[in-house]
């Protein structure tokens, strides 16, 4: 089964072609990674898939449905949630509240039920809280639950952002350079967490520069260069691919 299918996706900013006729499939099971040198168009690709940018051309299918041009808040509601290259937390809220916000699309309580403190709203609120606590403990931030998100060390902020995204129970989780700024040990733990998420049934699509993380966690790899796809395959295949070596080593081999 295919979770996500990208067909002929193109994005132009004036004369610049950021994404050039890119097509690939993300299978339902496992971890797919998008790699490529800086400026290869990886983040633009994520912005297109998650609905933050409309494509100039091409289509995006999510579980078989055409979702091209769907705004991000709708995408989240139908099960596609992303994280950001520069961590985007709600710094003035606690770790717990950050993750509770992740439950937004899975909860319903409105303004009136909150004002009247209706039993249904109270029940939902305590359920949201207990689910959030479980997720926080799961990513290893249990001791930080009541701290403000803005004061956490960087590595923990990364984990918090992932926990918050998981709270929405996505079918497809997009991680934009989750290892950026992490040290070696943190990256290793992150790899285990990503594997665990994928094994739990959530499809993971990740952009990453850290090749060790990609080679250890990804089942499939898509390689971009200058906005276009130049290779696709298993980590073992990609490692040997001539065009990929060329793109990364910049013609030194030639």
């Amino acid at each position: 089964m295919t979770r996500l299918s990208v067909k002929g996706l193109t994005k132009r900013f004036g004369g610049l072609v950021a994404t050039d006729n890119v097509s690939f499939d993300v299978p339902e099971k496992g971890v797919t990674a998008v790699i490529g040198p800086n400026g290869a168009g990886k983040t633009t690709l994520f912005n297109l898939i998650s609905g933050f940018l409309p494509p100039t051309d091409g289509r995006i299918f999510f579980d078989g449905t055409d979702v091209t041009g769907t705004p991000p808040e709708r995408m989240a509601a139908i099960g596609l949630v992303r994280t950001f290259q520069l961590v985007q937390l709600f710094p003035q809220l606690t770790v717990l509240e950050n993750v509770m916000i992740g439950r937004h699309v899975r909860t319903r309580a409105g303004l009136m039920s909150a004002l009247l403190s209706l039993p249904a709203a109270r029940r939902e609120e305590s359920e949201t809280q207990s689910k959030a606590r479980a997720l926080i403990a799961h990513v290893g931030l249990g001791a930080q639950t009541e701290r403000l998100a803005g004061v956490l060390p960087y590595g923990q902020q990364r984990l918090l952002e992932i926990a918050r995204a998981l709270a929405a129970e996505p079918r497809l989780l997009l991680l934009d350079e989750p290892a950026a700024g992490l040290n070696h040990g943190e990256t290793e733990r992150l790899g285990l967490l990503i594997r665990e998420i994928a094994d739990g049934g959530t499809t993971v699509l990740l952009i990453e520069h850290d090749m060790r993380l990609v080679m250890n966690t990804a089942d499939r790899i898509v390689v971009l260069n200058f906005g276009a796809k130049i290779a696709e395959g298993t980590p073992a295949e990609i490692e040997r691919h001539a065009d990929v070596i060329e793109a990364y080593l910049g013609g030194v081999a030639a």
Binding site: L89, L93, A165
Partner: peptide, 19 residues
């Protein structure tokens, strides 16, 4: 849930929309 949504977009509109 309502109030947290407000604090969320005051912190980061992109993150709020992504959620």
């Amino acid at each position: 849930r309502f109030g947290r949504a407000l604090v969320a977009f005051s912190g980061s509109e992109d993150a709020a929309r992504a959620l």
